[in-house]
Design a protein around this nucleic acid. Structure first.
Lengths: 211, 211
DNA sequence: GACTATACGGAATTCAGATTCCGTTTGCGT
DNA sequence: ACGCAAACGGAATCTGAATTCCGTATAGTC
């Protein structure tokens, strides 16, 4: 096949400024959603991006689509990270690290947390497309075969866990001095660990001893 | 003191119909919030209650206040239940049952879940007023002293856990066939159990074995 | 049965934001 | 430089509720 135009690429290549704006808008939206959740305003996003609202709408049909685009990016990134985790030797360790990483990644992004926490369907679609489901399934089974993760956990439980975690990371929002997702995560991980298998030698985020 | 009017009761006693409506509205609101979360409409609530919107506003200054009232009721109920749990012999067992009960209680109520999941501050106030904090604190310490609950858990962790749980119970919403809060809860409880202490003999909601 | 303070109903008002529209500007191929 | 399709800006429009207002109905009282 000639390399010239095998695929019917319908994208006429954006004009330079358009491409630039597209990025700026996503970045601004990231900030906006992160700070105010889905309730942030399109005008603000536009202003932050240094463009007019009209331009935002030229790039994304509506608010929801804008968020979706961001979510998709995120999941792609997460999928990459999961793939990396799959390479590591100790699957349980890898799994824990992955969970911690993703929690942290989300901790300062209310927008994402909100989607995952209260609009699971959106996340689900994105997750599927990014191949995240298969990847994390593999990682899980690997950890289970190694006897480090409880055998009765199912792949479908992962989104559930992440959903719960998101709610916690997301709802800090200034109030709730004690809304501490690190602690929550560690408890959750302990619950997922295979019964009897030793605790991790040095869990990154330690739970404080009371008093 | 004469029993006639010791306290300066400023409430002139509602008219009979008003009292009736007040209840009807709360009930309608309960349903409304349960089904559509905070996004349900005041008009709908009014219609369901068989009154006009005006009447709703006569009883509750605004939507938020209406929700708050409902939340307060809930927490009071929860506090009662917690007090009962405190009476039981096995504190860990009692704690688990309590968590299961409250999760179930919430499972079919998006409104509540939403408040707890994404507006923690509201819940916090209600929790404080109902005395729930002290009560659950006591229950926790009792379980810890009995060596059944991990010692490094703090009272402040409970709301966090409940917040996570709420997100999961709340976001079922029709989609997500697998969004299974029972499983989530059991994992969480396992994570909270004292290391080494035996598992419960017969956990109510069992995790299915895969395959 | 009449009187009046309470309550009620629901149309009208407000408001906050998302989305649209269209005249203007700009990148880029010739 | 020129021309024009591709992009832009942002005021104007639309929308979907929440909340207000005020004339009407009713419970409770004499």
């Amino acid at each position: 096949m000639s390399a010239t135009k095998t695929e019917p690429d319908p994208i006429p290549a954006l004009r330079a400024d358009a491409r630039r704006n597209h990025e700026a808008i996503k970045e601004a939206a990231r900030d906006g959603f992160a700070e105010h959740g889905f309730d942030c305003q399109m005008e603000d996003i536009a202003r932050t991006a240094g463009v007019g609202v009209g331009t935002v709408y030229r790039h994304f049909p509506n608010k929801e689509a804008l968020l979706d685009a961001l979510v998709a990016d995120r999941f792609e990134r997460l999928a990459e990270e999961t793939a990396k985790a799959l390479e590591k030797d100790d699957p349980w360790e890898a799994f824990c690290e992955l969970m911690r990483w993703s929690a942290e990644y989300q901790a300062d992004d209310r927008g994402l947390s909100e989607v995952l926490g209260s609009r699971p369907m959106v996340g689900e679609a994105a997750a599927a497309k990014s191949g995240l489901v298969e990847l994390s399934g593999k990682l899980m089974r690997k950890a289970q075969r190694a006897g480090q993760m409880r055998k009765d956990l199912l792949v479908e439980d992962i989104p559930t866990m992440i959903c719960g975690l998101s709610a916690v990371t997301g709802s800090a929002e200034g109030s709730m001095p004690a809304m501490n997702w690190e602690r929550f995560l560690e408890v959750m991980l302990d619950g997922m660990r295979a019964p009897g298998s030793a605790k991790l030698p040095a869990p990154r985020a330690r739970l404080n001893q009371p008093r």
